[in-house]
Design a protein around this nucleic acid. Structure first.
Lengths: 240, 240
DNA sequence: TCTTCTTTGACTTTCGAAAGTTGAGGGGCC
DNA sequence: GGCCCCTCAACTTTCGAAAGTCAAAGAAGA
C-alpha cells in the first residue's frame, strides 16, 4: 500500500512536508550540516526519505527564514555564519525580546503565569540531571529552554514582534550550538532563569526587561569568546 | 518543443518559480485576491500557467512572508487583514525604518547619495504626469516609491533590520492599496519626500528619522481613516 | 421535520520521471 | 606551453499523474 504516496501523515496532523522541514531545520541548527555546505537533492532525498518536490518545498520555506540560501540553477546551500552576522542577529533579537517581554509582563493573565512556572520547572528538572544523562537528552533541553523563553514573551500583544523574534531565536540557537562544540559544556544559567521567572511573576516589567537583556548579551559574549571562527579579525574593529 | 518543461526561463536569470511567486505577490498586494479568499491550485494553475509543484513552491515562500496562510489538508488562503494587524505591522515597521534610516544616513557613501537623488527624481517625474497617465502607470509609481524608500535606508549596516523591514514594507503596501480603493486618489507627498531627500543628503540623521516617522505615521492614519473595514469598532478601544 | 450516516466529487498533497542547465575535464589549435 | 572550445555527466528545475483526504449533498431513519 501507499505506493506512490499522497497526503500520508506521520504523527498527528502534520504533513510530510512540514515534518521534513522541521527535521531539516533541526539538523541545520544542530550543525549537522556545515554552514555554507551544499544541500544536494540526492543526499537529502536519501537522508529524509522523501521526494524532490517535498524537499524543495521545505527548502523554499527555510530559504525565507534565512537558514538556507539559493542561487538559481545552482541549488541550495546552508546559510553561512560569521561574526558580523552573529552580532547583527543578536542585536535585533535582544531588542525585540526585551520589548516583547515588557509588554508580556504587563498584559499576561493567570494562564500565562502558569505556563512560566511549568516551563521553568521542566527546564530545572533536566538541568538537575547527572551530566551523562543531560548530554544524552540535550535535544530535550533545547526544547525546554526554548519553551521557557517563549513562555516569558507569550503574552506580548504584537503578533509581528513575536513572529520576527521567533525567526531570530532560531538563528541565535544555531550560533549557540556551533560555539558549544568548542566549549566544555553549556554553562546553564539556572539562577538567571529563576530571577527572570520571579520578576515576571512579580510583574516587574522593566526589571524583567533589564535582566533579560543582560542574560542574552552574556550568552552572545560566551558564543563569541569560545568559538574560534567568531574571534575578531586582526584588522577589523570589534563591534563599535 | 518544451514538452514537459524544465528550467525554462522567462527574462534574465529568473526562475519560473520566482517569476510566479513575484506575480502572485503583486496580485495579493494589489488586492486582486480578496483577503481571506481561497487560493485553489486549479485557479492558480490557469492564471499563472504553471504546474502544481511550482505554485506550491511559490505559495510556500509567501507563507513564511505572512502574505498567505495555510491549514494542513485544506490548502492556502490569502492572509486576512484587520485594523489590529495594521496597527501592529505599522508600529514595528515605523520603528525599524527609523532605526535603519538613522544608521543609513550616518554611514552612506557617495553612491548611496546618488541613488537617493536618482530615485527621487524618477518618483517626481511620475508624480508630475497628468492624472490619467498617472493612473495608468500606477504600478510604475509603486515601484518608484518603493525604490526611493529603499534608497534612503540602503546604507544601514544591519542586514537583518533591512530584511525584516522589507517584509513589513510589503504588508504596509498591501494596506495602502486596499484603502486606496476607497479614496479619491492617493495624496502624493511630494513635499515630504523632498524634505527627506534633502535632510538625508545634509546628513542630519536624527532629523531624517523624525521626518520619516511622521511621514509613515500619517500614511497609516490615512489608511485607517479612509478604509471602512479599518474603522474602530464601537466596543473596542482604538489603540491605547 | 430534524438528525445521522453514506456516498461522491472536488481538492490537496506527494511522487518520480523528463527536460534543461551548469561547470569541469579532455582534446585540439595557436 | 597556454588558451579556447566542445563534450558529457551530474545536477537542478519543472511537470503531470496518482493516491488520499475533506466536506458538502443526498438518502434513510426517528
Amino acid at each position: 500500500m501507499n505506493g506512490v504516496g499522497a497526503t500520508k501523515r506521520l504523527a498527528d496532523t502534520t504533513l510530510i512536508s512540514q515534518a521534513v522541514q522541521s527535521r531539516l531545520k533541526s539538523d541545520i541548527l544542530d550543525g549537522q550540516f556545515t554552514p555554507g555546505s551544499k544541500l544536494g537533492t540526492a543526499m537529502l532525498q536519501e537522508r529524509y526519505d522523501s521526494s524532490v518536490g517535498t524537499l524543495r518545498e521545505a527548502l523554499s520555506h527555510l530559504l525565507s527564514e534565512g537558514l538556507v540560501e539559493m542561487s538559481a540553477g545552482r541549488g541550495y546551500r546552508v546559510a553561512p555564519v560569521s561574526r558580523a552576522d552573529l552580532l547583527d542577529v543578536s542585536a535585533l533579537y535582544i531588542e525585540l525580546e526585551e520589548r516583547a517581554v515588557v509588554d508580556s509582563v504587563r498584559h499576561g493573565d493567570a494562564e500565562w503565569e502558569t505556563e512560566i512556572v511549568a516551563s521553568f520547572h521542566r527546564l530545572s528538572r533536566i538541568e538537575a540531571l547527572p551530566r551523562e544523562e543531560r548530554i544524552r537528552r540535550s535535544s530535550e533541553w533545547l526544547a525546554c529552554h526554548r519553551a521557557f523563553h517563549l513562555a516569558l514573551v507569550a503574552a506580548c500583544r504584537s503578533r509581528w514582534v513575536l513572529r520576527v523574534r521567533a525567526g531570530l531565536y532560531d538563528h541565535m540557537e544555531r550560533y549557540r550550538l556551533i560555539s558549544q562544540k568548542h566549549r566544555p559544556l553549556s554553562i546553564h544559567k539556572r539562577r538567571e532563569h529563576e530571577l527572570l521567572r520571579d520578576a515576571a511573576l512579580g510583574r516587574q516589567a522593566e526589571e524583567v526587561g533589564t535582566l533579560l537583556r543582560r542574560h542574552l548579551a552574556e550568552t552572545t559574549d560566551t558564543v563569541l569568546r569560545y568559538a574560534p571562527q567568531f574571534m575578531p579579525e586582526p584588522g577589523e574593529p570589534g563591534s563599535d
